[in-house]
Structures are given as C-alpha cells and as structure tokens.
C-alpha cells in the first residue's frame, strides 16, 4: 500500500524546518465546534429547560 511511497521518499519530509500548517484541519474543527455549540443550545435550553416537571428541590 503506502510502503513503496514511504520507502522511496524517506527524506522528502523529514525535517520540521518548514512548518506544516494544517489549514484544512482548522477549518473542519471550526465547523465541528459550531455544530457542538448549536446542538448543545438546542438540547439544553430548548429540549431540557422547556420540559414539564422540572425538578426544583
């Protein structure tokens, strides 16, 4: 699978001299963050606090 490629190019990316910026990762994870916040707001503030028989004591 990926071995040939690996064996052929062991040094092309060996150094950390030129830093790799994971832009795509940052974008994906930002989308995830937004989904988490929205879903939480819905579940907590609308579903949960909107229900009957809230336990108050």
């Amino acid at each position: 699978m990926s071995r040939t490629e690996t064996a052929g190019a062991p040094t092309d990316d060996a150094g950390g001299d030129e830093e790799f910026d994971p832009v795509g990762t940052l974008a994906l994870i930002a989308v995830y963050f937004a989904i988490l916040v929205l879903a939480w707001v819905y579940i907590y503030y609308i579903e949960f606090l909107g229900r009957d028989l809230v336990v108050v004591g």
């Binding site: 028989l53 108050v56 004591g57």
Partner: peptide, 18 residues
C-alpha cells in the same frame, strides 16, 4: 418529562416538581 430518579433500597430519593 424531567422527573427522573433512581429508587435504591435503603435510600430515599426526594424530588420536588411543580
């Protein structure tokens, strides 16, 4: 609803609802 608790022998669960 939100009224939900465990009923454990030996313990008394207390919940107040309106």
């Amino acid at each position: 609803t939100n009224a939900n608790t465990m009923a454990v022998p030996g313990e008394v669960a207390e919940v107040t609802v309106e």
